[in-house]
Design a binder for these strands. Structure first.
Length: 286
DNA sequence: ATGGCCGGGGCACCCGGA
């Protein structure tokens, strides 16, 4: 009877796998060794829906929700229990005229698990500051804000996770060198993401310290203050061995969920394997 | 100072990644 009264603990993981087909064994192995993970959010699946390897996940009793394209991008949700109200792309809730070309690349999928909407994102990389891809990244983030505003009209329990391709603080990067002119740490990218995360924070509350009472807050920083914790390491220059990484994969939680959060951690193990993804999973429990 | 290494497409490198 007590179990009916106490809310279920949930674990949500985010992992940019850099090709779901190439990383299939790593992913299924990870699910087996992490049986408490309720939902795994994948980015960069790099496969059209017809060719997504659903069977290996279904054999492990997971439900798969996929939104992919050829060769690039692609996101998926791998869930122990069926999800409610699954949505693909910005266009699921925003008008086509404001979405424009921003759903051409498959980067957005979400579903509701136990009353919490889980939004899985693969934010554009941006290539280099000032490039066409950089402008696309900033436009994409501006549309994301509109998407979040609309989403928060229907729920106050929201976990926005994924590969954000932005490190918000200097301590999220192994070095201070050139960060102001580097993609993923430029002042404009950081300012744009901070503005996105401020959704739901009323004007009167703007002066108050983060993360409460409004806006989305970084689950990892609820529990860990120091730098040196990363989720991505360049394949080149033995970056992982030297821990020359970036923390660019995140779980941003709405206030109620942030209060509930019990743990948030980075699992380094998959990055140590042969032929790893360049990212490693980030898990939140609430 | 620069670039290093990957995956996909497709069969020679090129695009994109971050």
């Amino acid at each position: 009877m007590l179990s009916l009264l106490k809310p279920n603990r949930m674990q949500v993981a985010s992992w940019n796998v850099n090709s779901v087909r190439t990383r299939l064994g790593h992913i299924t192995d990870w699910l087996k060794t992490n049986p408490d993970v309720d939902i795994l959010c994948l980015q960069e699946t790099k496969v059209v829906d017809a060719d997504f390897p659903k069977a290996p996940f279904e054999e492990l009793n997971y439900h798969t929700y996929i939104y992919g394209q050829k060769a690039y991008n692609g996101v998926a949700l791998i869930s122990k229990t069926p999800l409610d109200n699954v949505r693909m792309g910005f266009g699921a809730i925003l008008d086509a005229d404001i979405v424009g070309d921003l759903d051409d690349q498959k980067r957005v999928i979400s579903g509701v698990l136990d009353g919490v909407r889980i939004l899985n994102l693969y934010v554009p990389n941006g290539s280099s500051i000032g490039s066409e891809k950089y402008e696309y990244k900033l436009r994409w983030l501006a549309l994301l804000k509109q998407y979040l505003i609309k989403t928060l009209e229907e729920t106050d329990k929201l976990n926005v996770c994924g590969d954000f391709n932005i490190a918000l603080e200097n301590k999220d990067i192994y070095t201070d060198e050139k960060r102001d002119t580097h993609i993923m740490s430029s002042p404009i990218e950081r300012e744009t993401l901070r503005d996105v995360l401020a959704v739901g924070r009323s004007m009167e509350r703007e002066h108050l310290k983060e993360p409460l009472p409004g806006g989305l807050a970084d689950a990892f920083r609820k529990f860990t203050d120091e730098g040196g914790h990363f989720s991505w390491w360049d394949y080149r220059a033995a970056s992982f061995r030297r821990n020359m990484g970036w923390r660019i994969d995140h779980h941003y939680l709405s206030p109620e969920l942030y209060k509930q959060a019990k743990r948030c951690w980075i699992d380094l193990e998959p990055r140590k394997l042969e032929k790893p993804s360049d990212h490693t999973p980030v898990i939140v429990e609430y």
